[in-house]
Amino acid sequence: MHAHGYTKREIAEVAVKNKRNALDHPSAQLGAEITVDDVLNSEIMAYPVNRLDVSPTSDGAGAVILAAEHVARRLTEKPVWIDGVGHCLDTAYWCTRDLYYPDYVEVAARHAYEMAGIKEPDKEIHVAEPYDPFTYKELHHMEGLMLCPRGGSVKMLTNGDTQRDGRLPVSPSGGLLGVGNPIAAAAMMKIIEIFLQLREEAGARQVPGAPRCGVAQAWGDLMQVGTVVVMRR
């Protein structure tokens, strides 16, 4: 808000989008049709963060099966490939860092994109599941993943670009805000969503246009760990 003049009203649209998307997720805890005003009028937890800006406490689990290429081809006609992985830890002295821009997510993303041969993430990635434990973190992480320029995430959101039928759907699963935030399983939920989207098996959550490349991202610990996974079909 301070760096780019984003308003609470704009940021609240992340919650509206993700909770609506979650209505189509069979495991969702907090899928709902809400409005920006519902977010702004929800209980203030720690200003500028309201209750509906925050993901819930959740219990959950997720799993994927990894297999060698020749095994995967034998097991399924529609394998999904992990084409790039990046991890980065920034300093644990979090009062010493830039608390807006997640450099460590960018570093992790650059590693993953290089491994996957991605040069223009905003064009080559068709569906994204950035970590969204709070509304504003989805926006931070879109910028860290270089899906938009720094300071460009709110414009993408308010244009409708990140809607399920938008130019670059973001958190079509419903994200942590809508599906839930089972810490340590939450990023797996995002990887599973990309898996289903790439196989066009996401049902009512399916993004149009037969996506071929997706990215999932996790964030955590002392707010300084970024993990990025690029997947293709």
Binding site: E43, A46, Y47, P48, L99
Partner: peptide, 25 residues
């Protein structure tokens, strides 16, 4: 001040009695 919040919850995630006049953290 680099950044701050006006918190209506305490360190243990309990609600502060803001209505009752308790100052937010």
């Amino acid at each position: 001040i680099n950044t701050f919040v006006i918190s209506n919850v305490d360190w243990k995630a309990g609600r502060l009695d803001i209505e009752g006049g308790v100052r937010p953290f």
